[in-house]
Design a protein around this nucleic acid. Structure first.
Lengths: 201, 201
DNA sequence: AAGAGTAGTCACCAAAGGGTGACATGTCAA
DNA sequence: TTGACATGTCACCCTTTGGTGACTACTCTT
């Protein structure tokens, strides 16, 4: 048997990702990970300390949350020049697409509603930072326009998260086909309509 | 020991509710329920068949989903007379309040995102019926007004579910305090604004 | 009052989970 | 080449879980 600590650690972390992707958190445990990684479970304790720490290591090992660039479309200046409604709407579209392209993130998001653990904490932290930065960069404008921008974007952001999570198992929600591109186009259009009608002032 | 089958069955079902309320689904199992109900677990198999069937029995034993009356405020006619935006907004407010007053439902809703089981199926069925009926009763109007009412209400409904579920563990979302009445008033106001600005035509 | 059938008890099983101590073997420096 | 240490293996432990067979004892009918 070849021996290589770092390689083994990677094998273990990869196994976490695979298990998470295919079966969610329920099947995740020391034994299962060891089996999947084809590694003795004692190594998980030796290298990481235990399951919580392994989860944390997994959490920082991948890009589970959309980057700032991804949300802004990589063009912050261009976005700033747009009227706020369009800018907001663009960010929301990007957000939805970014989440939909990250099955592992959906899984974590789902689990987050049920139980908090080291992994969900990592994700939560990254997310908060991202949200705060976005708000700061993008809406120094319009604090006193009478519309509660935070509340509106909270609603739309929450909706996106829920629908992405839900679409993993169920394909229709309130007569909208959240399992298809078409359905999401409808949702994007609705978000745009809401932004333009409500955020403008 | 007094002997009474029906009473024992009730004790078991009550235990499910208590376990669910305090610890969610993770702690739910034959052994745990038997322990909590202070009953031998073999009775669970004898009386219900097993955990899935017990969950189903639990599911039909309580009012886990807002009734039609609760959503409409008990006054369908009055609601029908209102303009659609106001009506929609009222229903959404009622929906949010109804969910928030049902901790067990939040728990089931949360679990639903992670795994489907007999309980979530029961809830899902009731919910579908409710949603369909609402749509039929309330918006025979305005099919071709250019706005995608289904998409908009899908977004707002999804947002409510997510925020209710999330507020069990985390108290702030996107700078909105979803743990307090005030926060929810802000959200309700935002929903009203959205309905009035977007559904009107 | 007696017996039948049911409600409840007890003891057990196999499987799976988390966790650990002791051993074997590969790797690398002296 | 020889050790020393780090890497990997193996064999256990205990607890919990789902699930079942066999027994006891209550209740109700006749």
């Amino acid at each position: 048997m070849k021996r290589n600590k770092e390689e083994t650690k990677d094998k273990i972390i990869d196994a976490v990702g695979r298990l998470l992707a295919e079966g969610g958190f329920r099947k995740l445990g020391v034994n299962a990970v060891a089996r999947e990684a084809d590694v003795d479970k004692v190594l998980i304790y030796r290298y990481f300390g235990g399951m919580p720490e392994l989860l944390r290591a997994f959490g920082v090992s991948g890009d589970f949350w959309p980057t700032f660039e991804e949300l802004t479309g990589g063009d912050l200046e261009g976005l700033r020049r747009k009227p706020l409604p369009q800018a907001a709407s663009t960010v929301l579209h990007n957000f939805a697409r970014a989440l939909r392209s990250r099955p592992l993130t959906s899984e974590i998001l789902a689990w987050e509603t049920v139980e908090r653990n080291e992994l969900t904490e990592v994700l939560e932290k990254v997310r908060e930072d991202s949200a705060v930065r976005l708000l700061e960069e993008l809406s120094p404008v319009a604090e006193e326009s009478g519309v509660d921008i935070a509340a509106i974007t909270a609603l739309l952001g929450a909706a996106i998260m829920y629908l992405v999570v839900r679409s993993r198992h169920v394909k229709v929600f309130n007569a909208v086909d959240i399992g298809s591109e078409d359905g999401w186009l409808r949702l994007e259009a609705a978000m745009t309509a809401i932004c333009e009608a409500c955020i403008g002032e």
